[in-house]
Write a protein that binds this DNA or RNA. Structure first.
Lengths: 143, 143
DNA sequence: GCTACAGTCTGTAGCAACTACAGGCTCAAG
DNA sequence: CTTGAGCCTGTAGTTGCTACAGACTGTAGC
C-alpha cells in the first residue's frame, strides 16, 4: 500500500474480524448510511478506526436484541446528536420490548397447537393424521 | 361473462374473501406452484372451486403455525400423493416445533435483557443511559 | 522485474414471503 | 354506450442481508 493503513487504521477484513460482522454486511451498512463513509487510501481501500469498531458493535448488538435497522437508525441519531435523554431511549426500548413480548405470545400459541396436535399423532403408518386435520380445519388459532 | 362462473365457480376476489387471503397472494401461490393453475373462462378469468378453498385454507393455516413455504410444499406433496403416514407428518411437525421453541428461547433472552436494562433507566433527562451502555458494550447476550 | 495470489473494489442478483402498483381488458348495470 | 368495478399481466418494492463476477491493488517469492 502506498499510503499504508498506518497506526490504528483497519481494512475491511480486520473490522469484520474484530466485530464478528460479515464482510459484505459492512459495505451494506455503509451503503444504507448506518456507518459513515470511511476515508480511503489513494487506491480506494477503506480505512477504518476504533470509532467504526464501536459503531458497528453497537449496531450488531442492537440487531441481536431484535431492533430493526430503522429503530437503530433512530437510536444512532440520538447518540450522534448527543441530545438523547434516558427517557427517550427508555421509551423506544419499552416499545420494542412490547413487540418482542407480542412475538413471544404468538409463538407460544403456535407452540401449544403444534405440541398438542403432534401428541395426538399415533406415529405409525396410519394415513389419517391429527396434524393434517388441524391444518385442513378452518378457523383461527385457539388461545 | 360469456362463459359465466356457474355453479360452484368462484372468482379470485371471492376466494380471497372466503379464505381471508390477500388477493395478490393467491396469484403468488399459484405462481410458485402451491395451488394448481385453475381453469379459466374464455376471457382468461380464473375459476376456482371448493378444492381451491380447502387447499388455500390449508396453506394459510400452516403459515399461521409458522411453517415455511417449503415445509408446506413438502406437506402438500405428502397429501397429494396420498402416501403420507402419520409418522412422517409427526416427524416434520416435531422438527418445526423444535424450531419454534428455539425462537421462543431466543426471544425470551432478548426480552430479559431489554426488561432488565430498561428497568435500570432513570427515565429522566439524564444523557447517560443503561440501554445505550448495554448496546455499546461488547460481548454476546447473557443467558 | 515478474509472477502469483490474496485482498480489495464495484455493481448487481439472490433469498423469504409477500404486497402493491401500472396499464390494459372485460363484464354488467344504468 | 358509457361508466366503473373487477380481472388480467408483469414488475418493483419491502427487510436485512449475503454472495457473486470481473476488475484492480498490494505484497511476497524468485
Amino acid at each position: 500500500m502506498l499510503d499504508h493503513v498506518s497506526g490504528r487504521g483497519l481494512q475491511r477484513a480486520e473490522l469484520a474480524r474484530r466485530t464478528g460482522c460479515n464482510l459484505e454486511t459492512i459495505r451494506y451498512y455503509e451503503k444504507i448510511g448506518m456507518i459513515p463513509d470511511p476515508p480511503r487510501t489513494t487506491s480506494g481501500y477503506r480505512i477504518y478506526d476504533d470509532t467504526h469498531v464501536s459503531r458497528l458493535r453497537f449496531i450488531l448488538r442492537a440487531r441481536e436484541l431484535g431492533f430493526s435497522i430503522d429503530d437503530i437508525r433512530g437510536l444512532l441519531v440520538l447518540v450522534d446528536g448527543g441530545t438523547q435523554t434516558c427517557a427517550e431511549v427508555k421509551e423506544r426500548t419499552e416499545r420494542h420490548l412490547a413487540d418482542v413480548r407480542a412475538k413471544i405470545a404468538d409463538l407460544r400459541r403456535i407452540e401449544k397447537v403444534l405440541a398438542v396436535t403432534a401428541a395426538q399423532c399415533s406415529g405409525d403408518d396410519a394415513p389419517g393424521c391429527p396434524v393434517l386435520e388441524t391444518l385442513a380445519s378452518q378457523g383461527d388459532l385457539p388461545g
